[in-house]
């Protein structure tokens, strides 16, 4: 069973003057084994949506299917721990959740909570630290002494060490420099391809959607407006214009070339291939 939202609504602070409907009857099915991007303007319900995936929020109405679980309004929070083991959620600016004395201990914290033995947790921690690109030599340092990018990688390692089947990331590249965010996105691709994790990424960066994601979900005003493959999505110029989405530079450049009379084959999405295609055209 994949991940599915069925008529899910969520209202913050119901019955008060501050009541706010963040999700309105969302219907959505997420494909397993793929990287899905969730995009949409601020306040469109992206973060609320992903917090349903490991039942941090329970729907006010409707139901969420995650793996073999059905989450409804009536579920007791007690039974949800096993779900959280399978769906790892990395929040925005996850570096603020670090609290242990050493990097290693912090990464071990998650697995230990889910009943993994001390040795196994340590083994997993060392492995995941390598996966996220942290040199094991700093494992005994305090996480608070490290740089922002390193802290974020350690926080992500802390979730990965739990070994979830589904990895959900809320704006994982916010506040990172271009180089850092690029290698961060490459890490998620690797986790998807090599470790077969289903990855969901909330993002604002269309370049990332184009280059690293398989599917795209667009949220607007608490509703899921469209859900399709990235390829289809960026070919639908009318829809992109309607949703007021900034088209990635590569595609815009290709479009301008087409207007000027140089039409290139479909499906070019990265700079390298585009450059080669153009080079192929202009050679005498």
């Amino acid at each position: 069973m994949p991940i599915a939202f069925e008529k899910v609504s969520y209202t913050y602070a119901p019955g008060t003057p501050f009541s706010y409907a963040a999700l309105k009857e969302v219907d959505l099915a997420i494909e397993m084994g793929k990287i899905t991007a969730i995009i949409g303007p601020t306040g469109s319900g992206k973060s609320t949506l992903v917090q349903h995936l490991n039942a941090l929020l329970q729907p006010s109405d409707g139901q969420v299917l995650v793996l073999d679980r059905i989450i409804t309004h009536a579920d007791k929070p007690k039974q949800l721990k096993s779900l959280r083991k399978n769906v790892g959620l990395v929040f925005q600016f996850p570096e603020y959740q670090l609290f242990e004395e050493t990097v290693l201990k912090d990464v071990m914290f998650g697995p230990l909570n889910f009943g993994v033995s001390e040795e196994e947790a340590k083994k997993r921690a060392m492995e995941t630290l390598t996966v996220v690109g942290i040199d094991p030599s700093i494992a005994e340092k305090s996480p608070l002494d490290l740089s922002g990018g390193q802290k974020r990688r350690i926080a992500i390692a802390g979730i990965l060490a739990i070994d979830p089947k589904v990895l959900v990331l809320d704006e994982p590249t916010a506040g990172l420099d271009p180089q850092g965010s690029k290698s961060m996105m490459q890490l998620f691709t690797q986790l998807n391809r090599q470790y077969e994790k289903t990855v969901l990424i909330v993002t604002h960066d269309m370049e990332h959607v184009l280059n690293y994601c398989d599917n795209v979900v667009v949220m607007q005003d608490g509703k899921c407006v469209t859900h399709q493959t990235v390829k289809e999505f960026f070919n639908d110029g009318k829809l992109l214009h309607e949703l007021n989405i900034k088209v990635p530079n590569v595609l815009r450049f290709k479009e301008s070339l087409a207007k000027g009379g140089m039409s290139l084959p479909e499906g070019i999405s990265d700079l390298q291939t585009l450059a080669k295609a153009i080079a192929g055209r202009i050679k005498p």
């Binding site: 941090l56 959280r84 929040f91 603020y96 959740q97 979730i159």
Partner: peptide, 12 residues
């Protein structure tokens, strides 16, 4: 936010 983040790491 931190409560939720730690809940995701299995804190109860």
């Amino acid at each position: 936010r931190i409560m939720k983040a730690q809940a995701s790491r299995g804190v109860d």
